[in-house]
Amino acid sequence: MAATARMTGASGQVDLSVSTIRGVGALVLLGIWQGLALSGFFFRDVVPPLQKIAFGLAALFGNGAFYANLAVTGGELALALLIGGLAGLLVGLLLGGSQLMSDAYESWLSYLGPTPKIILFPVMIMLFGVGSGSKVAMGAVSCFFPIAISVASGVRGVDPTLRRVGRSLQANAWQMFLKIELPAMAAPLVNGFRLGFGVAMIGVLLAETKLSNQGIGFMIINAYTRFDMPQMYALLIVTIAFAAFVNAFAVRLARRFGARTV
């Protein structure tokens, strides 16, 4: 079809409106929050006023225990991603590479994947104890599935034409994998790890809230039982903001590798 008309006017003006809209939106939401907080409609600190939340955040960053617990959770998360990621990668490569294996086992992945892993927690405790072991196990089991699924589909999605190009240029197996298949799979790979990160984080943190004496999850539930609402809000804000940040970064990365939709 013929070219469409181009927008006239400085694009800078359009950006300003969007920021303004966002600013207004944020102000409205914060305003509603503050209104609810000061209305006395909710019991005491259930909806704390924004100042209290701000103080809670400041107090949190000054709290040594926060960093200690952060280290614990960070370590558990990292280990979970390592184990679950490696397992997911291997299984994904296996299923993606073999039609037979895929027909036999891939439906397991797509059905078990969305199943809530928290139900496995009692089993994890029995197998790995009440310490970090069970948390790492929860995280690993959680992230295994999205990674395996993404890798399997990524391997299959590599354009066979690209592989033919490699063969015609006499590429050996290692070169094929590193220079052709891996880059071709980069987008789904990043996507899989993005989803894996999200569910691993949920798995580890929820396990900590359920049964633990350290970690961020523990801090959250601890704040709840002490009814230190500002601290609980602060922890939740930090956690969710971190998750959002990692997710946005991974989305940008995946787009750079050519993902059309995320």
Partner: peptide
């Protein structure tokens, strides 16, 4: 993408 379920104690309170 946010792990909203982590805020479950909050929802409990609310």
């Amino acid at each position: 993408a946010a792990p909203l379920v982590l805020a479950y104690p909050l929802f409990l309170v609310l």
